[in-house]
Design a protein around this nucleic acid. Structure first.
Lengths: 207, 207
DNA sequence: ACTCAACTGTTATTTAAATCACAAAGATAA
DNA sequence: TTATCTTTGTGATTTAAATAACAGTTGAGT
């Protein structure tokens, strides 16, 4: 299958979660406009995304909810599951761990890292916290493929470098310091301050 | 001034933060390609964004760092400052409060809300936590314009409705439940699970 | 004074994403 | 049966964002 557009991947993740909820409510078929309503987008958008993954609904009943969940899974999940580390076990880091914990998904957070000795050897929602120095060793040993950075901004560059050296495949950076990594590593950055400033701008100027 | 593009607003926020750092390091002039390097984007992008806000650099010295900070401020800040509430004082909510606290900016988090009585009347990094029932009263009394939702997903709809009724102008929703609000209210949604699933997809399939 | 190199500012072009518009087809009802 | 309604699937179009291309300018070096 061809590489999917960025935005389509994001929506697929959302479709799946919406479908899991739909299925839990006992509904087995769903129309594009119903999915669209849940996510507040247009029905065409939904149909096009679904078209892109090669799934096709039935004309009079729309999409089969379980099949859709299944297909999306084959696309965005890794069959054997994906193992994730969180670097920085401060308030944001532990919030992230707690947030993912309990969601049933193929993504599992299996390790936290911190420099603060107080936090070491503790469990965060069942996830062990290791000293930052051991990051390379643990990443390999635990077969960790992705990392979330939630350290103070001052540490970002150092952390990113260590992660890349350890052979990580993808990074989600919640720090406000932009990083650059070899193009082998997929990088996504998200900055809460920027987001809130954007909300402030558009709330004020209208849109 | 005309309404700026979405992405430009996001980058302006980042330019400003980068410029504050630059200024702190004692540098008073900066070229577009230097800014571009910091954020890992192209120099043209930087120049275009700056063009859109009507600022213009000097040919041989690039941009005046302080002026740039100043101008960006007049665009994305509200002169009198913007007052923000965080709904949900769980681990994510308090991480957000702590995260903003200390950053000097015109955005200030002035209230938290929660239903859990244990959390009420506590301070989170200096921010008082009020009972959720008082949200309308406090929003008006404290002149709060924006809200961040960081409750469990099950509460999102109720919270959003209360916020809209209280006359909030913009919402940043960190919950995985999409909400819909009157078009008077600017809404931004961010979902960590979707983000991480996206990283997983592109880390696996390459890009 | 003249040339060159290094910037900025901006128009034109390309690319990515969303939307429109409509053909095709299954169910229902007359 | 035949017409009609509803829904999917998709080519064509539009819109938003990023990139390319380049004219214009200023200072440094000679």
């Amino acid at each position: 299958m061809k590489l999917l557009p960025d935005k389509t991947v994001e929506r697929l993740s959302q479709y799946r979660r919406a479908m899991l909820k739909t299925l839990a409510s006992g509904k087995h078929h769903i129309y594009s406009h119903e999915i669209a309503n849940i996510l507040h987008i247009t029905p065409v958008q939904v149909r096009r995304d679904i078209m892109l993954i090669g799934y096709t609904g039935t004309l009079r009943h729309g999409y089969d909810v379980s099949e859709l969940i299944e297909i999306i899974g084959t696309i965005i999940d890794s069959e054997e599951g994906t193992r994730v580390a969180v670097v920085g076990a401060g308030s944001l880091g532990s919030a992230i761990i707690r947030y993912f914990n309990g969601k049933r998904t193929k993504l599992s957070i299996v390790a936290a890292f911190d420099v603060n000795p107080d936090k070491l050897n503790k469990l965060y929602a069942g996830v062990p916290c290791y000293p930052f120095e051991k990051i390379q060793e643990i990443v390999k040993q635990e077969n960790i493929q992705l990392a979330v950075i939630a350290t103070p901004a001052s540490e970002t560059a150092k952390v990113a470098e260590a992660l890349v050296n350890a052979g990580i495949k993808g990074i989600l950076n919640y720090t406000p310091s932009p990083i650059n990594v070899s193009s082998q590593v997929y990088l996504e950055e998200y900055d809460m301050v920027t987001s809130l400033e954007k909300v402030a701008y558009f709330a004020k100027h209208g849109k």
